[in-house]
Write a protein that binds this DNA or RNA. Sequence first.
DNA 1: GTCAACGATTCCAGATTATGCAATGAGTTT
DNA 2: AAACTCATTGCATAATCTGGAATCGTTGAC
Lengths: 276, 276
Amino acid sequence: MTADPTPHVEVSGNVTGRPRETAGGIQSLDAALWVLTTMARLDGAVGLSDLARACGMPASKTHRYLASFINAGLVRQNGRSGTYDLGPGAIEIGLAAINRHDFVNSVADRFSELTEETGLTGLLCVWGNSGPTVVRWIRAANFIVTSLGLGSTLPLLSSATGRVFFAWLPETITEKLMHEELKRARASGRVIGEAGSGVKGARALAARVREAGYATVDGRFIPGLVAASAPILDWQDEAQAVVTLIGTNPKDIEPGSPAIAALTRFCAEHSVPDRG
Amino acid sequence: MTADPTPHVEVSGNVTGRPRETAGGIQSLDAALWVLTTMARLDGAVGLSDLARACGMPASKTHRYLASFINAGLVRQNGRSGTYDLGPGAIEIGLAAINRHDFVNSVADRFSELTEETGLTGLLCVWGNSGPTVVRWIRAANFIVTSLGLGSTLPLLSSATGRVFFAWLPETITEKLMHEELKRARASGRVIGEAGSGVKGARALAARVREAGYATVDGRFIPGLVAASAPILDWQDEAQAVVTLIGTNPKDIEPGSPAIAALTRFCAEHSVPDRG
DNA sequence: GTCAACGATTCCAGATTATGCAATGAGTTT
DNA sequence: AAACTCATTGCATAATCTGGAATCGTTGAC
């Protein structure tokens, strides 16, 4: 296929440019995948003529590609001569891709960029058998002494990390630890920071964290240290991992601060996009 | 490309046969999509040589297809000359396909209410290229994770989910998988639960499931776990999705139990009313 | 009921790419 | 250092892909 001279016309307003042809690849496959990708970015079923225009291709060429996609199950057609849409094969490939996406390692690979950008110490946690569990540390220039090491678990309600897991995991997973921590708090006469009293207070805190998109704790959890955490979200809007930044300056965890902005952007970039 | 004389060799034991070339399609695209589909059915990242063998193709040919898939984002490579795996573009296409599935989306929005009410683990499945495919699940407390994961396919005749699809989908859709499972059952000398022997037994089971309005399996399919499934029906009385509850207490799947009542009510609420 | 318009689908001659084997490059093991 | 394995690329040849035109099917206007 010669380079396509037709100006790229978008139907739905998506901005993503057409990829150039692959070095060492197959040109007709490149063109075909452009059709598939364009279809995925449209809002729903589309007619052949509209899709061909959106792709900047003759309809006969687009039709041949669609025939192969239909045969493979990636596309289906609503009746003979009807509109085209993504099919069960697309669901299957997508689910396979999501299922084998390694959330933790994809974050860990670029984790140091975040700590370099913000100058804060970074912590990466997953949900383990005993609750929030540290799997990565990156100490920034600000030297912080703490007992937290790899494998440490953090409290659910009084740490920023724990609060993010509490907000973004189903309560069936977190409720046991929640009740244990509330019980210990009652026994010791302590109130767990903003969690206030009892289950209702904990749930209200979780609602505030979800609304904000992240959690913070000030210097009272670990004297002298402040922390902010945000979730890495999967296809079901559940936290697969939590990233936390730790520092000493309370301004770093104020809403709108550069560190908060960097943290939430970094976590959004590593989450599954456009979750239902 | 001439018809491929190389015997079809499977790496992971998946059964679905290689599709024949598309009438009115593009042969190189058919071959390329075979590579992609095969990769999706493998358990994880794969080397070029292994993937080429699994597809019955020369490595140089497979390599060119992969180059185009990488360029489109559907595949990524772990380092130069490293293994290949599905990429973010595949996630994007899969999510686009799922997000257009109106029945799945309406159920998913209220799915957690059902699992909270019953205290059981919930699965939501659609019919994919390889059969019943998990698109959502919510774990109950203390649920021991089995091999079920996003994208998993379930058997047609020996799982509750599969039996519901078998009962409420046209046989033109399910017959291939039915014959494959009956063949494997004969080869291994096993009888598939209540399916009894052969096609007649399978159809008799389907009739019983339709009459009851739901399917169950006791602890023999997955030792120690019981399950009940019901269909989300469209305007043609076909199962667009299936909801399954999984637990450990056999009383939960007895006729008339609160869980069965909640499941069938929930599915009826999400089905098209007054079908037929 | 007829006819025009529109969109999907198929045909076909010519243009162009895809292909498989061999060669090459890179990394690992002995 | 040599051998081996796997990924990547070159190249002559085989084979397909292509775009416009023709055809088919459906729908709506009259």
